[in-house]
Simulated scan of single mutants.
Amino acid sequence: LGLRPRDARWVAAGELLPPVVVVAVCGPPLGALLARLTLGPLDLRLLTGQATEPAAVLPWWLLGLVSVALLATAAAVVPVESALRRRDRLSEVLRAGE
């Protein structure tokens, strides 16, 4: 579409990376918070009347690994996306309504 390959990569990164970064950074803590808020009132200890219960252990390293994998996947998709869109002709892109 008239962009140099370097510029096409910047455009693809600008379109793909912001939502992925928000999900990778905010998703795991939000999921842990949601699990804490919803599973607390449903605690088996409340139904059985037991005084103590083993605490659940959250593997924080796994949440970090998921975030890193998500960002790495997005970084790998950017060059592929820019290479695929480089072959599009301007006339075909402008006829998107058909």
Rank of each mutant, 00 (worst) to 15 (best):
A12M: 03
Q50C: 08
P41I: 07
L42Y: 01
A72T: 07
A69M: 04
L37Y: 09
L84D: 12
A8F: 03
Q50G: 12
C26E: 12
A96H: 13
L34F: 07
A55F: 07
V68K: 03
G64D: 03
L37A: 14
L65M: 09
V66R: 00
V23Y: 09
T73E: 07
V57E: 14
P59W: 03
L46Y: 04
R86K: 11
A13E: 03
V22W: 10
G2I: 01
R45F: 00
P28D: 01
A51V: 14
A12T: 00
R6F: 10
A51F: 13
L34K: 03
L37F: 13
G2Y: 02
E98G: 13
A32W: 10
A83E: 07
P18L: 07
L90V: 14
A69S: 13
L58R: 08
G14Y: 14
V11D: 04
D7L: 10
V77L: 14
T38A: 08
A69P: 00
T38W: 05
L30T: 14
L33G: 15
R86Q: 11
V77P: 01
L84W: 09
W61I: 03
P79R: 04
P59G: 04
R9Q: 15
P5I: 05
P54Y: 01
L42H: 02
A8R: 03
R86V: 05
P19W: 13
A96R: 09
R87P: 02
S67K: 06
L44M: 11
A24F: 01
L71V: 11
E98R: 15
E92M: 10
V78E: 01
R89T: 10
G49R: 02
T48F: 01
L33I: 13
L71H: 00
L17P: 00
A76I: 08
P19N: 08
R86P: 02
A69Q: 01
A32Y: 12
V93Q: 04
A74T: 09
L62T: 09
A76Y: 06
P19R: 06
P41A: 07
A96Y: 15
L42V: 05
W10L: 15
E53K: 08
W60H: 09
E15V: 12
T48I: 02
G2D: 03
L47N: 04
V22T: 10
V77I: 13
D7Q: 15
L71P: 00
G49P: 00
W61F: 07
A55R: 10
A24Y: 00
L70I: 06
L37W: 12
